[in-house]
Design a protein around this nucleic acid. Structure first.
Length: 738
DNA sequence: GTGCAGTAATCGCCTTTGTGAAAC
DNA sequence: GGTTTCACTTTGGCGATTACTGCA
């Protein structure tokens, strides 16, 4: 849409558009009106252009305020002066101007472009401000909260499903469909081989009996879920969409669950769940095992999400109806029946399966009723590159609906599983004794009564975890609990001592992890109440962290001098407890700032005493007692380190004198406070009594009976002049006073 | 198929001795 | 007018970690 606009070029910078804050939109429309009217007046040059007046101009005219007329006169004068500068040109208008109803609404939201003195509301891209740290932290917390909530809800979900599998009616329905021969095989004897044979037949029958419609619950990238949820306005809308989604694994109630068994079709998850009920109906001790697929708590790097969005879906059976069509969705990938694909022996592992307890071997056997694997727990671990199935929480729900964490049985990388469970605690959180959320949550969810069976299972999983052989890939040495390579040492880590060498990989020596030691700067050790032994040489030099303005200056200086600003690091074995200089001749050993560092109690100088009372320094000064502020920590404000003090340090002999004086001072302060309080009480009472007296006087003057009488007096005087002074409304006494 | 270097993104750690205005 | 208290502030660089790509 192109419109011809009357514009006036600025004398100093012709044709150069400038912008103005959108908050001035009202003013803008007023000016627009003025401009339009000027256009009508200046017929010589503007007449032929008037016909080209756009809809927005008309709207802006309507929106103009009459109060602007005074301003208009002033502008008219200017207009005459600048008439020669008027110019016309064609400009491209945004499409939305075609709908004039929307203009008013949009005016505030859009950017005003001042083109000379004609202001055009244009749809311009907003300036994307850098996300603040607060916003980032909020989003991070939100993601974490969603992750936690999702884990809890998934546990509740599987507890409910397991409860359905335990239901007596469900058992009856199961018994009505199980072939007799399978029942007979399972009831034969309790040996492991007999149990396996029985289950094998049952699984074979089940694979043919139950038709798979989709994969069930899978992990979805955070951004995909966020977009998905944003698409619904209400919770009901969302629930409705899931009820109609065949792969969403939504089952309304137990009846619907039983109906799926009767109709012989459902998702992969449902199949495994119903199979647990089938096994229970056959008299087996069964656990329903679920590998929870919660919403991740962290967003992967954008490259990840980008490629994830462009890659073909991992599970070809996933519903694609609501997804955008990408280039790759060409006929290269033909539709594969989930009932065929998911049941293949080499198919990707499911997220729900079963465990059957064998009383003979006293252990739990893994049953994958989907792919038909029996007692093969290692096959339940998804590939590292599988984006829709991650192992973090593998929970088993038994026939009493008790929960057991069996993750270690199903993953070769328990560290990764732990990382996926929860955000790692920060150093401060660990120091503060905080426990990971998942640990606390599982302690509440999992059953606490440990039986002999549980103990054996725990030991078996422990053994499995400790069976770790020396890695054959360099990358696998990173964070390995037993072995370490020099290349993977962190900034504040060294190998001490550099022996024994346990082996080598591609020419690199392998050291025991126990030889990896953390080092620290002398300043950091001082904060721990330690000092570097005399004559010790730094074991490592690291780049200094530049945080404070002073450090920044030093760094700049170092840069100019042509060397990096580095700092010496020492190992713990190179330190000894810090011994502060003692009090000599009653003189406190203050530092250059007039304070004493007291990061740990052992930093208190011999012969001195610490009094951790706020404000006591003032009293000490009053009494002429020498003291130093006790610096216990640092705060960092505006790129500056600010010492945090906790009371004062005085020489030991003066401690009690000062404390006695402090007691007296406190008592005197208390007496003062009581006196002040009493005074305040008297003032309040006085105020209250005065208020009550005034109220009583007002009530007396305006009480209803009095008012009726006065109103009657007023009406009787209607013919003549009313007593404006109040017609006697004021009490007589007051009138007299007046 | 596997290992590895490089890359990009996220996120937490580190930092070590003020300042100005308002209230008292 | 001197002293004390309080609010100010979410910086910014770096390293660890992770997941991916591309190459050997």
């Amino acid at each position: 849409m192109v419109a011809t606009r009357r514009t006036r070029k600025r004398k100093n910078s012709p044709g150069e558009p400038s912008t103005q804050s959108s908050s001035s939109s009202t003013q803008a429309s007023k000016k627009m009106k003025v401009e339009q009217q000027k256009g009508q007046q200046s017929k010589g040059k503007g007449k032929d252009r008037e016909d080209d007046m756009t809809e927005e101009d008309l709207v802006n005219i309507q929106a103009a305020n009459d109060e602007q007329e005074d301003e208009e006169d002033d502008i008219e004068e200017d207009d005459e002066e600048e008439d020669d500068a008027i110019d016309w040109e064609n400009i491209q208008l945004p499409l939305r101007f075609e709908n004039q109803d929307s203009i008013k609404e949009d005016i505030d939201a859009d950017t005003l472009t001042v083109y000379n003195d004609v202001e055009i509301v244009m749809k311009t891209p907003r300036v994307v401000l850098k996300e603040s740290n607060w916003e980032k932290a909020y989003q991070r917390n939100l993601r974490q909260w969603m992750h936690h909530s999702h884990v809890v809800l998934l546990i509740a979900h599987y507890k409910l499903r397991n409860e359905w599998c335990l239901n007596a009616n469900m058992k009856n329905v199961c018994l009505s469909v199980i072939p007799d021969n399978c029942m007979r095989l399972l009831a034969k004897d309790s040996s492991e081989s007999a149990l396996k044979t029985g289950i094998k037949w049952l699984v074979k029958w089940w694979q043919e009996f139950f038709v798979l419609t989709g994969p069930g619950l899978l992990t979805k990238p955070y951004l995909e879920v966020e977009n998905h949820y944003n698409g619904f306005k209400t919770l009901k809308e969302w629930i409705d969409s899931h009820q109609s989604d065949q792969n969403g694994d939504y089952i309304e109630d137990l009846e619907a669950f039983m109906q799926l068994l009767v109709s012989k079709a459902g998702t992969r998850d449902t199949s495994a769940e119903v199979f647990a009920a089938i096994l229970r109906a056959c008299g087996c001790d069964v656990r329903l095992v679920a590998s929870l697929q919660p919403l991740p708590y962290k967003i992967p790097p954008s490259t990840t999400s980008k490629t994830a969005a462009e890659d073909p879906p991992q599970e070809t059976t996933e519903d694609s109806s609501n997804k955008p069509i990408f280039k790759y969705r060409a006929p290269t990938k033909a539709y594969v029946d989930p009932n065929v694909q998911l049941k293949e022996a080499k198919a990707k592992p499911p997220t729900v399966w079963c465990e059957v307890y064998c009383t003979d071997s006293k252990r739990w056997m893994t049953i994958d009723p989907i792919r038909g694997h029996i007692d093969k727990p290692t096959l339940m671990e998804p590939a590292t590159l599988n984006r829709t199935n991650h192992i973090s929480f593998v929970l088993a729900f038994d026939n009493q609906n008790k929960v057991t964490d069996v993750t270690r049985r199903y993953t070769s990388n328990i560290d990764k599983a732990m990382r996926l469970r929860d955000r790692p605690l920060t150093r401060r959180e660990k120091e503060g004794g905080m426990k990971p959320w998942s640990e606390t949550m599982l302690a509440r969810v999992c059953h606490k009564k440990i039986t002999e069976r549980d103990r054996l299972e725990y030991e078996e999983m422990e053994k499995q975890q400790s069976r770790q052989v020396m890695p054959s890939a360099i990358g696998a040495f990173k964070n390995h609990p037993l072995y370490a390579l020099e290349r993977h040492l962190l900034k504040y880590e060294v190998l001490h001592p550099k022996e024994p060498v346990l082996g080598s990989i591609r020419g690199e020596k392998i050291y025991p992890r126990s030889n990896v030691k953390t080092v620290n700067t002398a300043v950091n050790f001082r904060k721990q109440g330690k000092q570097i032994k005399t004559g010790e040489q730094p074991i490592k030099m690291v780049n200094a962290n530049v945080f404070t303005i002073e450090k920044k200056r030093l760094q700049e200086q170092a840069k100019q001098d042509g060397y990096p600003l580095s700092v010496a690091c020492y190992g713990e074995w190179q330190t000894e407890p810090y011994i502060p200089p003692p009090v000599i001749n009653g003189k406190l050993p203050k530092n250059e700032y007039g304070s004493i560092d007291l990061f740990t109690p052992n930093m208190l100088p011999q012969g001195a005493a610490h009094i951790p009372i706020k404000g006591i320094g003032k009293l000490a000064r009053k009494l002429g007692i020498d003291y130093a502020d006790a610096v216990v920590d640092f705060d960092f404000v505006k790129m500056r380190a600010v010492p945090v003090t906790d009371g004062i340090i005085v020489i030991e002999q003066e401690k009690w004198l000062l404390l006695e004086a402090w007691d007296e001072h406190e008592q005197a302060e208390a007496i003062k406070a009581i006196a002040k309080q009493e005074k305040d009480v008297y003032i309040r009472w006085r105020k209250l009594i005065k208020s009550l007296l005034i109220k009583a006087r007002v009530d007396r003057a305006y009480e209803p009976q009095n008012n009726v009488d006065k109103w009657e007096n007023f009406n009787s005087n209607k013919g003549g002049e009313a007593d404006v002074r109040g017609g006697g409304f004021l009490p007589e006494s007051d009138q007299e006073d007046n």
